[in-house]
């Protein structure tokens, strides 16, 4: 079932396979054409999509979706047009796409708010806040930032437990997102 495909990267993470250090204050390459500057050390737990965590993916997680093409979903192996990006999409539509994708992963009560223009790597991007409850019933908050670039979607998605972690990390994450530079 599709669900297990999505869970797979997290399972890999949980088994501690192939995890690399993302050092602070050094530019990190994301996808083919973006670099970001992390404020703190992270653990890179998967490469595709690039995903970082400090305490574990159920607690805090940043995912970098790069160069998503029209007709492709954010996550590999997902079928169903409502999960697919289309180059004609407006920011409101992409917000809906993220909500649907988070739900597909097992999250519930997913809500987005405060949709606004946000600079992204020199482009006019947009960002929005998220709130949801994870499959493990942990209350979570999130922040997404995205842009359309050469007809493709770049989207960075941060999520963390409302209890302590979102508040503790959000300032660093905003700086990280703001540091994005297009090569």
């Amino acid at each position: 079932m599709v669900r297990f495909l999505l869970v797979l990267p997290l399972v890999l993470a949980l088994s501690g396979c192939a995890t690399a250090l993302v050092a602070p204050d050094r530019p990190a390459e994301i996808g083919n054409d973006v670099t970001v500057m992390p404020q703190r050390a992270w653990n890179r737990i998967t490469n595709d999509p690039e995903a970082w965590t400090t305490q574990g993916p159920q607690i805090d997680l940043i995912r970098f979706f790069s160069g998503i093409r029209s007709g492709d979903a954010l996550l590999a192996g997902v079928r169903g047009s409502r999960f697919d990006f289309d180059a004609k999409m407006l920011p409101n539509d992409i917000q809906d796409l993220v909500i649907a994708t988070l739900q597909l992963e097992g999250n519930k009560a997913v809500r987005a708010d405060n949709l606004a223009p946000c600079p992204f790597g020199g482009d006019k991007g947009f960002c929005f806040d998220l709130a949801f409850v994870s499959a493990d019933d942990l209350e979570m908050k999130g922040l997404a930032i995205a842009r359309k670039h050469d007809g493709r979607l770049d989207l960075f998605l941060f999520q963390a437990a409302s209890e302590y972690y979102y508040g503790e990390m959000i300032s660093d994450v905003r700086k990280l997102f703001a540091s994005a530079q297009t090569q």
């Binding site: 599709v2 669900r3 169903g80 097992g106 519930k108 409850v133 499959a135």
Partner: peptide, 9 residues
Amino acid sequence: SGAISLGQD
């Protein structure tokens, strides 16, 4: 696929 979301809460 909504069945996936069913198993969640």
